[in-house]
Amino acid sequence: MSSSYEQYQKRRLISSYISVVLSIALVLFLLGLLGLFVLNAKKVADHFKEKVTVTIFLKDTAKDVEVKQLEKSLAMADYVKSTTYVSKDQALESMKAESGEDVLDFLGFNPLKNSIDVNLKADFVTSEKLESISEEALSKNFVDEISYDKDLVAQMNDNVKKISFWILLISALFTLIAVLLINSSIRLAVYSKRFIIKTMQMVGATKHFIRRPFVWQSVKLGIIGAILALIGMAIVLYFVDRTFPELAFIKQPGLIIALFVFVFLLGIFITWISTFIATQRFLNLNTDKLYY
C-alpha cells in the first residue's frame, strides 16, 4: 500500500516537473521569437524601403557623357544604394513581357524614354529626402521627369513608426505575462510540498537550508526549459533564414548569441526568484493556514 502511494506521489511529482519545464520552455520560446522579431524589425523595414525605386527619365536629347556623369555622381552619393541604367529598348522589352503586347505594332515607334533606376539606402527613404533628390535631378536640363510612389513612401514610414510603438508595447506586456506564467507554475510546484517545508521548519531547519534544494531544483528545471526554448528558436531561425535569405538574419551572430544568452539567463533568473518568493511565503505561513 505504502509502495503504491509512493509511486503515485512520484508520478505526480514528475508530472509537476514536466508541466513546469514545458511552461518555461513555451513562454521563453515565444519571448525569444518576439526578441528575434524586435532585433530584426528594422532590418525587415529597411529591406522593403530599399526596394522603393526612384526612376529618372531622360530626354532623348541627353548626351551619353551627361548620362554617364549623372550615373557616376549618383553612385558616389552617400544616400544611394544602387543605380541601374535602363535604355528605352530594354524598357520596351520589359513592357512587352509584362503585358504581352508590342506597342510598336500599333504606334510604329518606341514612346518610352531612357531612364536611371535609383534605389536609396533605407535611412534616406523619406518624403523630404526624395523631394530634395528630385529637385536636384530636375535641375539638370537633360532630365525629363522623376517618378516614384509618393503615397507608398509616406505610408511605409508611417507604418514603421506605428509598428515600432506596438512592438515595444507588446514586448513589455509579453515579458510581464512570461514572468507571471512561470511564477504561477513554480508556485504550484512548491505548493504541493508546503507540508514538507513546514515540517522541516518545525524541527529546527533554517529558512536558507529549507529553501536551497527547492531553488536549486527549480533552477535546473529553468535550465532544461531554457535549452528546449533555445532549440526551438534555432530551428525557427534556420527555416526563416532558408525562406528569406535576403534578410540575412543569421549573418549577425553577435545579436543572436546575445539574445540566446539573455533567454537562457532569464529562464534561470525567473525560476530562481519565483521559487524564492514562493518558499518564503510558505515559510512565513501559519500552520493552520496550510490547508487553504
Rank of each mutant, 00 (worst) to 15 (best):
T206M: 01
F124Y: 15
A172T: 07
N157A: 03
M1L: 05
K63C: 01
I167T: 09
A97R: 12
K88P: 05
I227K: 14
I24S: 09
K289I: 05
L169F: 10
S99I: 04
I250T: 11
F239N: 12
A77D: 03
K162Q: 12
K129D: 10
V153D: 05
K72E: 15
G267T: 01
F106H: 02
F109H: 12
T55G: 02
S99T: 14
Y238V: 00
M233T: 12
L22Q: 02
L22W: 03
T271W: 02
F262W: 08
V86Y: 04
L188R: 08
A154E: 12
M76Q: 15
S15F: 08
K161W: 08
F29I: 02
I196W: 07
D123Y: 08
E71Y: 00
M202K: 11
I167R: 06
W166H: 13
E145Q: 15
V203F: 00
Y191L: 09
K161Y: 13
K59V: 09
L130N: 05
I18W: 04
I223L: 12
R12K: 14
I167L: 14
K113G: 06
S171G: 08
T55M: 02
K150R: 14
I18M: 09
Q9D: 14
D60T: 07
Y17K: 15
G222H: 01
L58M: 01
I277R: 13
T61N: 07
S171K: 06
K43Y: 09
Q69M: 06
P213Y: 00
Q69E: 15
I224M: 06
